[in-house]
Design a protein around this nucleic acid. Structure first.
Lengths: 218, 218
DNA sequence: CGATTCTTTGAAAACAGTCAATCTGTGTGG
DNA sequence: CCACACAGATTGACTGTTTTCAAAGAATCG
């Protein structure tokens, strides 16, 4: 882990004299691509951004806490999950670079969150408090539009995932996952993918064995 | 079926000289409750509303068609579903009075829809074309806010449903459904609830039998 | 290297799906 | 009004998939 830390330190030193400038640049790039905000707007947006580093396994949000931010992932991979009575984890989603994460429900209602969010890898994120975020949405129509477009896409993706639960077997769900998130397969432990798909790690292991047979019959 | 038609004809004659005024009144009430639009705004909104009746089993949207509206349900119950290779139906959602329905994905992308939407009962709905709807969102901030709040709630509900698939057994899913949508249990054939829960009608029937034993042990 | 975590494998049990038959209620036509 | 057809629900026997529990085998990290 300190190996990675050293590496990124060097990178930062090369790329930019200031670590956080470098980080915000990724965020700026994202916003410019996704919306029509002006450079002035960007200044206003950055003014309310908080930068945060997470180490692998560190919580961003813990069940029972109230979530008060919107979180943009600059680097790393996070998961949102619950733990049931038997201690089984159920992963609601993964989030990597250029995704947003958080608990919309807790943010909206102010109730304690039912979810945990933690880092699967060392991560760097940008946090904006709800208050500031709402302000940005009010002040900058283009920002508001972007936010709604993201929500819209999230909803559509969510519906599509529900459909996989309704209609696909364990194997088919895994194949669909491979298609949709090939990058994640490399980054995320298999057992967590199983949890995301709603099957046990053992089942996913067997499913993989089966389908590798099928694809290479010799 | 013509019995119901006659009945509602009489009701309309009593309640209002104009059938569609009566219908729009329900819509107006909804909008007033959910947003801060002015009465002027309401006039603008109603100006682009289309009224439509659906008979039981009639399609609102058929797989392969492009969806171009937002649909508000004044009366009746609709379902969104797909049919797989084996002819099995998979119900993504039900929608009743004061809900919106449609296919956001097709609406957004302009691609043919993967879903079917049809009426489980005779229904009355209000349609607003995407173009007009977007215009309303632009012209009336309060309307835009309402729409986003609805989307937000839909997303949260959607996440919650995903969680049920990840963590609950057939019986638990059914119990959760009873809790969340007691009205629907009365209105929707049991086999369709099974389809919504992602189990077969036979399994749901057995699950019900089991849990009725459990609750009344004598 | 040693410890931990993750994955694989096996055997048995629980769970849900399939297919086919029967039962129930509803509405239709004779 | 009755007999019938039809759709939906239930039941039974069987099959297949997935889970569970336990153990052994990789892989990873400090």
């Amino acid at each position: 882990m300190y190996k990675a830390g050293l590496f990124s330190l060097i990178l930062h030193a090369i790329a930019s004299p200031s670590k956080s400038n470098n980080v915000f640049e990724a965020f700026r790039k994202y916003i410019r691509e996704k919306s029509n905000v002006t450079e002035e707007d960007l200044v206003q947006i950055e003014a309310v951004c908080q930068y945060k580093k997470l180490r692998k396994r560190q919580y961003l949000l813990q069940e029972g806490d109230v979530w008060k931010y919107n979180a943009f992932i600059v680097k790393g991979c996070l998961r949102t999950y619950t733990v049931d009575d038997k201690g089984n984890e159920h992963i609601l989603n993964f989030a990597t670079e250029n995704w947003w994460t958080g608990d919309r429900e807790s943010l909206q209602t102010g109730n304690p969150s039912a979810y945990n969010i933690d880092a699967l890898e060392d991560a760097e994120i940008i946090l904006i408090t709800k208050t500031n975020f709402d302000q940005l949405c009010n002040d900058i129509p283009a920002f508001n539009d972007m936010v709604n477009a993201i929500l819209q896409r999230s909803f559509i993706a969510s519906q599509s995932r529900i459909h996989t639960f309704l209609s696909l077997s364990a194997e088919e769900k895994y194949q669909a996952f491979l298609q949709k998130y090939p990058q994640l397969v490399m980054r995320v432990p298999q057992g967590m993918i199983a949890s995301y798909l709603g099957v046990t790690p053992e089942t996913l292991s067997r499913v993989r064995k089966q389908s590798s047979k099928g694809h290479r019959p010799s």
